[in-house]
Lab assay of single mutants.
Amino acid sequence: GQVHVGDTTYHFPNPEEARKFAEKAAKENNLQVTQHGNTFKVE
């Protein structure tokens, strides 16, 4: 799974890890998570 936060892309071998990371980043920054397959975008 990939997580895009601003201009930075994080790669995770496990989509579940990617999702947890995205949700945590979104919560900390008052942002939203959008999911496209195994790619998550925090914005």
Rank of each mutant, 00 (worst) to 15 (best):
K24R: 12
F21T: 02
N29L: 15
N30H: 12
Q32R: 13
H11Q: 08
Q2M: 14
D7K: 13
Q32I: 14
A25Q: 10
F21G: 02
E16V: 09
K41E: 14
T39L: 13
K20D: 10
E43Y: 10
F40K: 04
T39E: 13
V3N: 00
G6T: 03
R19N: 03
T34K: 09
L31M: 15
N29Q: 12
P15R: 13
E23I: 09
V33Q: 02
G37V: 01
V42N: 02
K27L: 12
E28L: 12
K41S: 12
L31A: 12
L31R: 05
A25E: 09
T34Y: 10
V5S: 03
R19V: 03
H4Q: 14
T9P: 03
E23Y: 12
Y10K: 03
Q2W: 15
T9L: 12
V33R: 00
K24I: 11
E16R: 06
F12M: 02
H36P: 01
E17V: 08
Y10P: 03
T34F: 12
E17R: 04
L31D: 04
H36F: 12
K27G: 07
F40A: 05
F40R: 04
Q2I: 15
A26Q: 02
G6C: 13
T8I: 14
E28G: 07
E16N: 07
E28Q: 12
F40L: 05
A26V: 02
N29V: 07
Q2P: 00
N14H: 06
Y10N: 03
E23Q: 09
Y10L: 07
F40Y: 10
V3Y: 00
E43V: 11
H11R: 07
Q32N: 10
N38A: 04
E17I: 08
E28C: 13
T39M: 12
K20E: 11
K24N: 11
F40I: 06
Q35Y: 05
T34V: 12
T34N: 06
F21R: 00
H4L: 14
F12P: 03
T9Q: 08
A26N: 02
T8N: 11
G6L: 08
R19M: 07
F12S: 01
D7H: 13
E28H: 10
A22G: 02
K20V: 11
K27N: 08
P15A: 14
K24E: 11
T9M: 12
V3M: 01
A22R: 00
E17T: 09
H11I: 11
T8K: 15
E16Y: 07
P13T: 11
H4F: 12
G37Q: 04
